[in-house]
């Protein structure tokens, strides 16, 4: 049994509308002591019959929060930082990066590399100043619950056909479950990369701890305003 408030949420309509429907006899309802009750089964049957959408779980849907949260540091720690990644071509460095990343066992790594390359074909992910942010063409909905960013410092700079023509020396590979999350992390990462001190630091970075420390500081300044 549901009360009026529950039905309001279930149908996502204002209370006044539901009251009117009750008065007009358009919705199945029981009345007791001046209050209204709805039988959930009746209501579902009625909704099906009239092709009306019922929110089955009337909490706000959780899988896609409207304002994604999460910071870079966490997802970078999940993806790991790797140095001296070998490879001569774009395909080779991407493959290496994928194989270095700690991924769940059900991920088909060859397929993932293919997705990354498809995206490169559409346009280079090299954003200039020797940095590239490769990512698959589609969000990988089922494989992750949160984003994973793998940082690979390349052994030798590789020509990514970047916008400024500079060879790329560092990759931030982003794998995210939703487009929204992807954009969220992308905007945070690009905030960091706009900082010239940071790009200079990247060129001489040699250990993960220093790298994470730098990211943490930058994010703090981002969240602090």
């Amino acid at each position: 049994m549901l009360n009026l408030d529950d039905a309001t949420k279930l149908l996502s309509l204002p209370k006044a509308t539901i009251r009117r429907w009750i008065r007009q006899g358009k919705i199945p309802v029981h009345e007791a002591r001046g209050e209204y009750f709805f039988d959930k089964k009746d209501l579902e049957k009625w909704a099906r019959k009239h092709n009306i959408f019922l929110r089955t779980n009337y909490e706000k849907p959780q899988s896609h929060p409207s304002h994604p949260e999460g910071n870079l540091l966490e997802s970078m720690k999940r993806g790991g930082v790797f140095f001296h990644v070998k490879g001569e071509t774009v395909a080779e460095v991407l493959k290496q990066t994928v194989y270095l990343t700690p991924l769940p066992p059900e991920v088909d790594k060859e397929f993932l590399v293919d997705l990354l390359l498809q995206r490169e074909k559409l346009g280079s992910t090299g954003i200039g100043a020797g940095v590239a942010i490769p990512h698959p063409r589609y969000p990988l909905e089922k494989l992750f619950t949160s984003a994973v960013i793998t940082t690979s410092f390349l052994d030798k700079p590789v020509d990514f056909k970047a916008i400024d023509g500079q060879p790329v020396f560092v990759l931030f590979m982003m794998l995210s479950p939703t487009t929204k999350l992807h954009l969220h992390y992308l905007s945070r990462l690009s905030f960091c990369l706009r900082n010239q001190a940071f790009t200079a630091f990247l060129r001489k970075c040699t250990n993960p701890e220093a790298f994470f420390k730098e990211i943490k500081q930058l994010e703090a300044s981002l969240d602090g305003g």
Binding site: L13, T17, W21, K26, I27, K49, H50, N51, I52
Partner: peptide, 13 residues
Amino acid sequence: DHYRKELLVNEEI
């Protein structure tokens, strides 16, 4: 949005 819902509940089946 409301208009459509109103049409739907008005249908007699």
